[in-house]
Design a protein around this nucleic acid. Structure first.
Lengths: 223, 223
DNA sequence: GTATGTTTCAAACAGACGTTTGTATTGAAC
DNA sequence: GTTCAATACAAACGTCTGTTTGAAACATAC
């Protein structure tokens, strides 16, 4: 316990509770009692609840982005002339996520849920933090997607990337519940890897769909 | 003011604030002061904050589901033999949403965001309420999707519907923020109808993608 | 005008919240 | 053994929360 495991105990408890209940719905008292540490420890070690939220993200996201950068390096080195295909880029991302050393068996699914919450819960400080710390890697991935889909307009690509992000974050964030339902309804076992294997073709097909023709939607008619 | 407009003033203020900030992050005092009514009015007219949340959903969702059932009736009547196509079913849903009489110009966008929040914020009471009140219409839509994609295995269809749901809920729930980003980055204005027009082809393409071949993902190698 | 039922209002309630404070307790350096 | 910084702890801080109360204001009927 060179540097005391209090910090890690807090991070573990916070990560799990945030994923289960969201940020505002999780109090410091829940976290510290689950972690079996004193209430004041959070403010002592992290400074504030917001800083704790950011630390939870940083603990996962920093090593993940390093792994991802390496994967992108390898990918670009392997195909020197032509840009990487869409499938290659998507799989590089997926494999990096799956390969990350996990704290426990549901590590990825927990973190996907947190990522989803970061988008949907209006945590201004968190969005700023994520953009400031990790925009470089994210931008690199966006550039790969751009090179792989030159036929799309910038606006089309922008929205389709949001759609992909949504499908991924939503599915992975509730993958435990969805897996259970499937197990009960159809008696099928599913791993996170298998979900990813089904998700990637879905995303690739959506991203490469025929560009939408502008469609006029009729105004509401009188009842 | 036959039955006092206090109830509607509260619903209007609550709807807008919930959409902007989420449920837990919106206090009754914010709502009542925005609505210019007394704090106790919420508990007098609705009974509790949770009941107010449900009332906000019911005010929109009940007429919407009626519109939707009618649209499904028309759709099934128009193609008597063959089942409706995937595009037809998706557009029936989209058009019903767009055609709904709006309280104001951003009515749909507000409600889409609320629907997204209903999924991502862990409001147990709300999920129970929605399932109890509106599961019939939802089930009918699922049956339409099943008939429109007979080539998919039950498992594939299950997961892809989750992907579609995720893309939709996620995008719509943060549509305001995403619109702003697009406005700043590319100088493009976007309406909810245009987002829907882009989303539907994406979803249709993803749902009808070639069935995924099982792919083995290699285990994490030693660093 | 008096009675009756409904709606508003100011004030208070009890509890939970994030944060701060002052004091123990620890473990190494000298 | 003393000193000193880092950590742990219990207790309290002030603020905010959803909800309740009891009296005032209002409308309707007799």
């Amino acid at each position: 316990m060179a540097q005391s495991d209090t910090v890690d105990r807090i991070l573990d408890a916070a990560e799990q509770l945030f994923a289960e209940r969201g940020f505002s719905e999780t109090s410091l008292r829940m976290i510290t009692s689950k972690a079996s540490v004193n209430l004041a420890a959070v403010n002592y070690h992290f400074g504030s609840k917001n800083a704790l939220i950011q630390a939870v993200f940083a603990r996962f996201l920093t090593p993940f982005c390093q792994t991802l950068e390496t994967a992108f390096d390898d990918l670009e080195a392997s195909c020197q002339e032509a840009p990487p295909t869409l499938d290659q880029s998507l799989w590089a991302l997926t494999e990096s996520a799956v390969r990350m050393p996990q704290r426990n068996e549901q590590g990825i699914s927990i973190f996907m849920r947190l990522l989803g919450l970061a988008y949907t819960q209006s945590q201004g400080h968190l969005r700023k933090f994520l953009e400031q710390e990790y925009s470089q890697t994210f931008g690199r991935f966006m550039a790969l997607l751009k090179d792989a889909t030159p036929q799309l307009s910038a606006v089309d690509r922008y929205w389709r990337i949001q759609f992909m992000l949504g499908a991924t974050a939503f599915t992975m964030s509730s993958s435990d519940a969805l897996r259970d339902i499937l197990q009960n309804k159809l008696g099928v076992e599913t791993t996170v890897q298998e979900i990813a294997a089904r998700l990637v073709p879905f995303l690739a097909a959506g991203l490469q769909a025929e560009a939408a023709v502008p469609i006029l939607i009729s105004k509401p008619s009188v009842a």
